[in-house]
Amino acid sequence: MNDIWSGLQAAFWLLVTLDRDLVEITLRSLQVSLTALVIASVIALPLGTWLAIRRFRFRRAVIAVLNALMGLPPVVVGLIVYLLLSRSGPFGVLGLLFTPTAMIIAQVIIITPLIASITHQAMRELWAEYHDLLISLNTSNWQRIKTLIFDGRRALLTASLAGFGRAIGEVGAIMIVGGNIDHATRVLTTAIALETGKGDFALALGLGFVLIGLALVVNFAIHVLSRTEREGRW
């Protein structure tokens, strides 16, 4: 209980004094996770919608694989991305290992199946509702995807926020590919892991509370910006 109280105090002082290191790693956490979220959403939203409207051979197998990939172990993703980006790997020449870009790549791989899978579930229901109308209006596949994404945007917001939640709280993969280098690749989660290892539980907890607060603020901000609550559609 003392540790939790000390953690709360630490979080309070870190925030009140606008600790420079805290601001730096918080901004880096946001930069990495939001960039990964945007890239993953651009891939996953149309992919999940396309899977909902298209009938093709092995479709069920593709959906099953996608669902299975939701549980992709981040450490394994980190290891694979590490091997691909290391000097001896196929993309070693790009020099991306231990950079925020490598962390973004790993997070995109982790959250894309999650967002695509939730999107597929939501779009499947909307497609069942719209199917006859959109077929009757002789729409192209691309017009169908655009219509479903636009009209299902609230469900897709939930899918994206689930992806953001996973990305911002992820530690295994980004620790491996980022290296937790101070002033370079250190983010909130890797800093928490480091402080815990050092035995500074209060600071680790403080950073943890900041991380939780950050996730809440981002979720709330996105809901406010997308005006979900104004139309009574929570």
Partner: peptide, 20 residues
């Protein structure tokens, strides 16, 4: 067929409303 479909419209028994 494409030309014919563009000149046709269909109203369903249960009206399908876009969420707009």
């Amino acid at each position: 067929e494409q030309m014919v479909r563009q000149q046709q419209a269909y109203v369903f028994q249960s009206p399908i409303m876009l969420r707009r």
